[in-house]
Every structure is written in C-alpha cells, then in structure tokens.
C-alpha cells in the first residue's frame, strides 16, 4: 500500500510516516497541494493523508482537483488536521473523504481510522 502525506508540517509528516511505515506502507511526502497532486498522477498512491489547509490551497480544493490528476485509480483520502469543527468535518466528508483524523492523534486512533477507511 502506498500513502502520500500532504501536510506543511514537517513534524506531522515525520510522525505519520513513522506510524505508516511500521504498518508496511510505502510513504511519500508533499509539503504543498500542487506537489501532492503531481505525486498522485505519477506515483498513484492508495491513500492520501491530507491537511485541511495547505500553503497553496485548501484540502477541500485538493480533493476536488484530485480526479483530474488520477487516471482511473482514485486514492482514498483521509483528512488529518487540527481543524476539528463539525462544519469542517462535514465539508470534508461531503467532498469525498473516507475518514477524518483530528489532531492530536495517537497510534490507536490512526489504526482505527485506517481500518474504518478499509485501508488495513
């Protein structure tokens, strides 16, 4: 399984990478949405772990642009953000997110969310 982490926080990328690699995922990282969308086209991940607000666009915009960058194989999107309002989570789900992780999280939460998204 391949996971692309799209998050402008180096710390979060490092923590998520550690958890995902321990579960057998191949991991790539992108700091900005544009790079993330390019990686979706070239690397074709199974999962995109996505921050709510990125430097160049919002996570919702990223999800909306995703079909244009994926030929046939759409990755599942799991938001992972400190933005944890009802409205934000609802917007993410309506945009097509499979799951939503509110920061801070621990490995139990991470495992649970990946399982519920059908990724474990």
């Amino acid at each position: 399984m391949r996971c692309l982490i799209v998050d402008d926080s180096r710390v979060i990328r490092a923590v998520a990478r550690k958890i995902l690699e321990a579960r057998g995922y191949e991991v790539e990282e992108a700091e900005e949405a544009g790079d993330g969308l390019d990686a979706c086209r070239s690397w074709q991940p199974d999962l995109v772990l996505l921050e709510w607000q990125l430097p160049d666009m919002s996570g919702i915009e990223f999800v909306e642009l995703l079909p244009r960058h994926c030929e046939g194989k759409m990755p599942k999107v799991v938001f992972c953000s400190s933005e944890g309002s009802y409205a934000s989570i609802e917007a993410a789900v309506q945009a097509g997110a499979a799951e939503y992780i509110m920061k801070p999280f621990d490995s139990d939460v991470f495992d649970s969310k990946l399982k519920m998204a059908g990724l474990q």
Binding site: S85, Y86, I89, Y100, F105
Partner: peptide, 19 residues
C-alpha cells in the same frame, strides 16, 4: 477527541454527535 475517533466512523460522528 481521542475517544470519538476510536472505532467510530466519521459518518456516525456526524450523524449522532454534536460539538
């Protein structure tokens, strides 16, 4: 936050919980 994220799918969080 930790408790509502263990075992509870996000759609059920939205359906059954409020902030």
């Amino acid at each position: 936050r930790f408790e509502v994220q263990r075992g509870l799918p996000v759609r059920m969080l939205l359906k059954f919980f409020g902030e």
